[in-house]
Amino acid sequence: MGSIFNAQQIVNGLQVGSIYALIALGYTMVYGIVRLINFAHGDFFMIGAYAAYGSFFIFNSMLAGKHGSIAFLVLIVSMLAGGLIAMLANQLAYKPLRYKPKLSSLITAIGVSMFLEYFFSALPMIGPSYRSFPDIIPKVQISLGSATISNYVVIDIVVAAVLMIGLTFLVRKTALGKAMRAVSQDKDAARLMGIDIEKVIGFTFLIGGSFAGAAGLLAGMTYPRIFPYMGIQPGLKAFIAAVLGGIGNIPGAVLGAYIMGLAETFASAYNSLLGEGIAFAILIIVLLVRPRGLLGEKVADKI
């Protein structure tokens, strides 16, 4: 099996890509609606992981043995935690700067991100060190021909897929989804049509944050350890995935995330420096060659 492009690597790449996709969606939705690169988004992922960690012990003591129910409840809690923190960050830090120069919001977002990371590592009950994440569901190895995969791989891929299908339904078929699309097209027109813009933006943060929270749970289970700075790298990678797909474009973020997951898995198998650097190399190439990304639309400046 000399090739690095074997089935095992493809499955690993898809698994990493699924986690990136859940994070990238939040980046792209928020960018689409308020044109903000929400730097703190990776930290919502971290908060989701910690919420999952904490709630697992509570649910486990109440429902010992009922793995399915526990996992489901933990997923809900991690999504709520990520989503609510995202909404709070929007309300306190981003909303007051909505009509100020864009860079003010970006710098504020960097501040929010640093605050969450250092605050969590400063808190005595959390602390800066790694914690190993419990097996929320018993781990089982499944062999598929030449490759052996764990049930966690299947869970990661399936949970991400289900959430993404849910999101597609929400955006395409519901009134909220229509409002979101309207606000991202033209804020002023949407306001004139009677849409409560701030409410729609708040919901977008809630949904984006909850997806990042879910990703936090999946990453915690998969790797299996968590720490306050765990959001930085996946956050950056997912952001790059969103840019690769065309930021603001929902299918683009998913496509970018899977490309990113696969590229990174293959590159790491080849050489560790390449694995570390490939994401940034992809970013720079995309931005220089096709800044709007794979599926993004060209926007002309009004002169």
């Binding site: 903000l36 690169i37 864009k102 860079l103 970006l106 950056l236 952001f239 790059i240 840019v243 560790s272 420096l273 570390e276 650097g277 940034f280 190399a281 970013l283 720079i284 931005l287 220089l288 800044p291």
Partner: peptide, 28 residues
């Protein structure tokens, strides 16, 4: 050079990426 084609937050991200690449290179 990227600054010739990119503005604002996009440029911020690219310079961040470059900075991280420089750091990764030293690290390796």
């Amino acid at each position: 050079f990227p600054s010739l084609r990119l503005k604002g937050d996009y440029l911020a991200i690219v310079t961040l990426g470059f900075g991280e690449i420089i750091r990764t290179v030293f690290n390796n």
